[in-house]
Design a protein around this nucleic acid. Structure first.
Length: 575
RNA sequence: CCGCCCAUAGCUCAAUUGGAUAGAGCAUCCGCCUUCUAAGCGGAAGGUUCCAGGUUCGAGCCCUGGUGGGCGGACCA
C-alpha cells in the first residue's frame, strides 16, 4: 500500500478537473508537524505560479474536485497554499491490515548487475572494503525483494602489476625450502616483505616486472605461483563475507583475470572505430565529452607503452560482458568516490563505442572515504590499515562483554549467537546509516555504544515484541486481528508501517541504504513509544484492544525484521 | 593549472530532493523499573545551516563569487 501514490492519483485527477495542466505535480509529502495534518499537497503553489493566479484560490478549486471519501477526515488550506490532509483512522487501520511484507512479484523485472566489494587480492581485506561490500549487498537484497533479477559481480583485482612482485617473492621463499601455505599465512606481512624487496633491490624489481608480463602472457610457472595467492586470498575473503552475512560466494567472483583474453579485442575494436589512438607510445582514448574549460579532452589510457593493459581496459571488457552476456538493463558500481573520473571515462567511452546502449542504465554509486577521529584517513596507531577480520573480532567481543553485563539467564551458546548478531550488526549499521557519498568518521566508541540509533536498538525492539508473544503463548504467524486505532502512539506506528514500500522504492532507485536505516529506526522508535504507552497483556486491557495491539506489534516485528534483513542484519528472539 | 566532492547543535549524523517553527543519537541536566526485557521511555538545554550576494510566495538544498578542507587529472587500481 503506497499512500503517497494513492493521494497523488486523487490529487492529479482533481487538479486536472480544476483545469490545471498535467505537467504540474501535486507534490505530496509527509507533514513535518502534527498541526499540518498527516500528509500535505504542495502543488497548488507551483501551479498557481504557472497560471499566474492566487494559490489559495487555486487550492480551494482543487479541493472542490477532490474525492478522498473514506480516506481523509479533514482537509484544510494553510499558509500560502498548502493543502493539509488528515487521514481517517479507519482507512489507516484497514490499509495496514492489508499490507504484508513479503517478496514482491514484479510486472517489469529488470536484470540488474551489481558490482560490489571487488577487493584486491593478495592482501587481506581492510576497513576500506567495508562500504562497498555491505552497501552493495544491501542494494542487491532490496532489488531482489522487489522482484528484479540481480546478478552480483565481485570484480576482484587479481591481475595487477603487484603480482609480479609477489610471485618473485614467493619463488624466493620456496627456493629456501619453505612451504607455500606457511609463507602465505599472513598475507599482509608477506606483501610488506615483497614491497620492501622491490623498493630496495633493483635486481628483484626487474625480475618482478618481467614476471608481470610472463604471467599475463600465460607462462605456466608464474601462473602456478599466482594461483597459490588467489586460493589463499579468495578463501580469506569468503570467510569475511560469511562472517559479515554478505551474500557473496564463489559463483559471484568475476575477477579481472577473467577478461584477460578479451583485452586485446577491446583495444582492436576501439582502434578500428578510431576511438583509440597512439600517443607517446601508448594507446589512448581522448574524450572531448569530458574536456575541461581549455578544450583539452580527457585522456583514458587503454594500453601502456610497454604493451600492458590497465583497469580501464578490463572495465570496458567487463561492461561488454555484462551487457551482451548477462543482458543487464542496469549496472550499478559501488566504487570509491575517488574513482569518479575513471567511471565517467569508462561510461562515456562505452557509450561511444556502442558497448552499452542508451537503454542500459550505467550508474556509479560512489561512497566517501573512512576517516579517523582526527579527520584524516583512518589508520591504526602504527599507521597501517585496519584489517576487517580484526575489526569484526573486536566487535563481537565487545558485544559479548555487554551481554554478560546485562544478562544472566542465557547460556554460553545463546550468548555467542547473540554477540555475533549484535556485534556484526552494529558495525554494518554504523556504516549503512550514513549518507553514502560523504566521507565519514570511524569511531569505535560511537559504533559500539549500542545505544540510540544503532542496530542493537532495532534488534532490541524486535526482541521486545517476540517476548510479548512468548509471554502470551501466541504464535504470531497464525495470529490475526482487527486493528482499532485509539491512542496517538497507535496512529503514529500505523502510519510508519504504511511507509515501508515507498521507502524501498526510493532505496532501490537511488541506492542509498541510509534511507532504509532511518526508516527502520523511526519505526522501532514509534514502537518503543507505543510499548511504553499502550500496554498489551496487562489485566485491565480489554480483549479487543489487546488483539488490536497484538496485531500492530506483529506487523511491526515483521517489518523490522524485513527491513533489517534488507540491510543484511539479523534479528534474534532474546537479547 | 584544470576538474569533482564536502562544510548543519560541543561530537557523530538526518532533513521525504525547493515547503511551513532545521530534526535524531551521543555528551550535559531533570524525571520514570513490585506491572509485557531500563540495550528503554518522557522532558530540558543546545543553531547566524562556513561567508557575501542573487533567483521567488518560500532556500540548508538552486545560481554567482569567495573562505576552509578532502580527492582526482596520461602509463597503479
Amino acid at each position: 500500500m503506497r499512500i503517497k501514490e494513492l493521494l497523488n492519483l486523487r490529487f492529479s485527477a482533481a487538479m486536472q478537473a480544476a483545469g490545471i495542466p498535467s505537467e504540474c505535480s501535486p507534490t505530496l509529502a509527509l507533514s513535518g508537524k502534527p498541526q499540518f495534518g498527516d500528509y500535505q499537497a504542495n502543488g497548488a503553489m507551483g501551479a498557481a505560479k504557472r497560471l499566474k493566479t492566487n494559490p489559495r484560490e487555486l487550492a480551494a478549486k482543487i479541493l472542490e474536485n477532490l474525492d478522498l471519501d473514506g480516506i481523509a477526515d479533514k482537509l484544510e488550506i494553510a499558509g500560502p497554499g498548502f493543502i493539509n490532509i488528515y487521514l481517517s483512522n479507519d482507512f489507516l487501520a484497514n490499509s495496514v491490515a492489508q499490507s504484508a511484507v513479503k517478496l514482491k512479484k514484479n510486472a517489469n523485472p529488470q536484470t540488474v548487475v551489481v558490482d560490489y566489494s571487488s577487493p584486491n587480492l593478495a592482501k587481506e581485506m581492510h576497513v576500506g572494503h567495508l562500504r562497498s561490500t555491505i552497501i552493495g549487498d544491501s542494494i542487491a537484497r532490496v532489488l531482489e525483494y522487489q522482484g528484479h533479477k540481480v546478478v552480483r559481480q565481485n570484480h576482484m583485482g587479481d591481475w595487477g602489476t603487484q603480482f609480479g612482485m609477489l610471485i618473485a617473492e614467493l619463488e624466493q621463499h620456496l627456493g629456501e625450502g619453505e612451504q607455500a601455505a606457511l609463507a602465505l599465512n599472513d598475507l599482509e606481512v608477506f606483501y610488506q616483505q615483497s614491497k620492501k624487496h622491490f623498493d630496495e633491490d633493483p635486481g628483484f624489481a626487474d625480475t618482478a616486472r618481467a614476471y608481470v608480463v610472463k604471467l599475463q602472457s600465460g607462462d605456466q610457472h608464474c601462473r602456478t605461483l599466482w594461483q597459490k595467492f588467489i586460493d589463499v586470498s579468495v578463501a580469506h575473503n569468503l570467510e569475511i563475507y560469511k562472517e559479515l552475512n554478505v551474500g557473496l560466494s564463489r559463483e559471484h567472483i568475476m575477477p579481472e583475470s577473467a577478461y584477460n583474453n578479451d583485452l586485446q579485442n577491446v583495444l582492436d575494436d576501439l582502434t578500428a572505430q578510431g576511438l583509440a589512438v597512439e600517443s607517446d607510445g601508448a594507446k589512448v582514448v581522448f574524450l572531448e565529452e569530458l574536456a575541461d574549460k581549455n578544450g583539452d579532452p580527457s585522456p583514458m589510457i587503454i594500453q601502456k607503452s610497454g604493451g600492458g593493459f590497465l583497469y580501464a581496459t578490463s572495465d570496458l571488457a567487463a561492461m561488454r560482458h555484462r551487457v551482451n552476456n548477462l543482458h543487464a538493463d542496469r549496472i550499478l558500481y559501488y566504487i570509491d568516490a575517488r574513482q569518479s573520473l575513471h567511471m565517467k571515462q569508462v561510461f562515456t567511452a562505452a557509450r561511444k563505442a556502442g558497448y552499452a546502449a542508451q537503454t542500459v542504465s550505467l550508474e556509479h554509486h560512489p561512497f566517501g572515504t573512512m576517516m579517523g577521529k582526527d579527520g584524516k584517513p583512518f589508520k591504526t596507531r602504527s599507521g597501517g590499515t585496519v584489517k576487517l577480520a580484526d575489526l569484526l573480532v573486536e566487535a563481537v567481543e565487545r558485544a559479548e562483554r555487554l551481554i554478560r553485563e546485562k544478562n544472566t539467564d542465557l547460556d554460553d551458546q545463546e550468548i555467542n549467537l547473540i554477540a555475533r548478531k549484535v556485534g556484526i550488526g552494529a558495525v554494518k549499521y554504523a556504516d549503512l546509516s550514513k549518507t553514502r557519498t560523504n566521507d565519514y568518521i570511524f569511531d569505535w566508541d560511537a559504533m559500539m555504544s549500542f545505544e540510540g540509533n544503532t542496530a542493537p536498538y532495532l534488534q532490541y525492539a524486535y526482541t521486545r515484541i517476540r517476548s510479548i508473544f512468548r509471554k502470551a503463548g501466541i504464535d504470531p504467524q497464525s495470529f490475526s486481528a482487527e486493528i482499532n486505532i485509539v491512542e496517538p502512539q497507535e496512529k503514529t506506528l500505523t502510519m510508519k508501517l504504511l511507509q515501508f514500500e515507498e521507502i524501498i522504492d526510493q532505496v532501490a532507485s537511488e541506492g542509498y541504504p541510509h534511507i532504509l536505516c532511518n526508516y527502520v529506526y523511526e519505526l522501532a522508535s514509534a514502537f518503543m513509544s507505543f510499548y511504553e504507552q499502550c500496554p498489551v497483556l496487562k489485566d485491565d486491557v480489554a480483549k479487543e484492544t489487546q488483539n488490536s495491539r497484538l496485531q500492530l506489534s506483529k506487523q511491526t516485528s515483521e517489518t523490522i525484521a524485513q527491513g533489517l534483513d534488507l540491510l543484511g542484519i539479523e534479528v534474534m528472539e532474546k537479547m
